[in-house]
Simulated scan of single mutants.
Amino acid sequence: MAKSKEIRITVNLECINCAENIEKRSRGISRYTTRKNRRNTATRLELKKFCRYCGVHTIHKEIKK
């Protein structure tokens, strides 16, 4: 079966502070799921979201599945 050529795809966002921050509120890595339009946003997505492990709003970057 061939890969789907959908315009809207589902992407995962991961907190960039969680991997390097040792003194967090609790252990874990914050991840969000969202959808993006492949035609309008060809580059990797970066959004400022709330990280429940760091306890603040941080930048979340798109990761590979």
Rank of each mutant, 00 (worst) to 15 (best):
M1T: 07
A2C: 07
K3A: 06
K3V: 04
K3I: 04
S4P: 00
S4Y: 03
S4A: 08
K5Y: 06
K5D: 13
E6P: 00
I7A: 08
R8D: 10
I9F: 03
I9T: 13
T10Q: 07
T10G: 11
V11E: 01
V11R: 01
N12V: 14
L13R: 03
L13M: 12
L13S: 06
L13F: 09
L13C: 12
E14D: 00
E14S: 14
C15A: 10
C15N: 05
C15E: 01
I16R: 05
I16Q: 13
I16M: 07
I16F: 07
N17S: 14
N17G: 11
N17C: 15
C18G: 12
C18K: 09
C18T: 14
A19I: 14
A19L: 14
E20M: 11
E20C: 13
E20I: 15
E20R: 12
N21V: 04
N21I: 04
N21Y: 08
I22C: 09
E23N: 14
E23W: 02
E23M: 07
E23A: 09
E23Y: 06
R25G: 07
R27F: 07
R27D: 07
R27A: 13
G28S: 12
G28T: 09
G28A: 12
I29G: 06
S30I: 01
S30N: 09
R31G: 07
R31L: 13
R31K: 14
R31M: 14
T33G: 03
T33W: 02
T33V: 13
T33L: 02
T34E: 08
T34P: 05
T34M: 05
T34W: 06
R35Q: 12
R35S: 13
R35K: 11
R35E: 05
K36M: 01
K36R: 08
K36A: 02
N37L: 00
N37I: 00
R38M: 03
R38I: 09
R38Q: 03
R38T: 05
R38W: 00
R39A: 11
R39M: 09
R39D: 03
R39G: 01
R39E: 03
N40T: 04
N40I: 01
T41N: 11
T41K: 05
A42I: 02
A42W: 00
A42H: 01
A42R: 03
T43N: 11
T43Q: 08
T43F: 04
T43S: 10
R44D: 05
R44V: 02
L45A: 06
E46F: 07
E46V: 15
L47K: 10
K48L: 04
K48C: 05
K49W: 00
K49H: 03
K49T: 02
K49Y: 03
F50A: 13
F50I: 04
F50M: 08
C51R: 05
C51F: 07
R52N: 14
R52Q: 14
Y53W: 09
C54K: 02
G55L: 09
G55R: 05
G55H: 06
V56W: 03
V56K: 08
V56D: 04
H57V: 11
H57Y: 13
H57I: 08
T58M: 08
T58W: 04
T58H: 10
I59V: 15
I59K: 06
I59S: 06
H60F: 11
H60E: 00
H60Q: 03
H60K: 02
K61N: 08
E62Q: 13
K64S: 15
K64C: 14
K64N: 15
K64D: 15
K64P: 09
K65F: 05
K65M: 04
K65I: 05
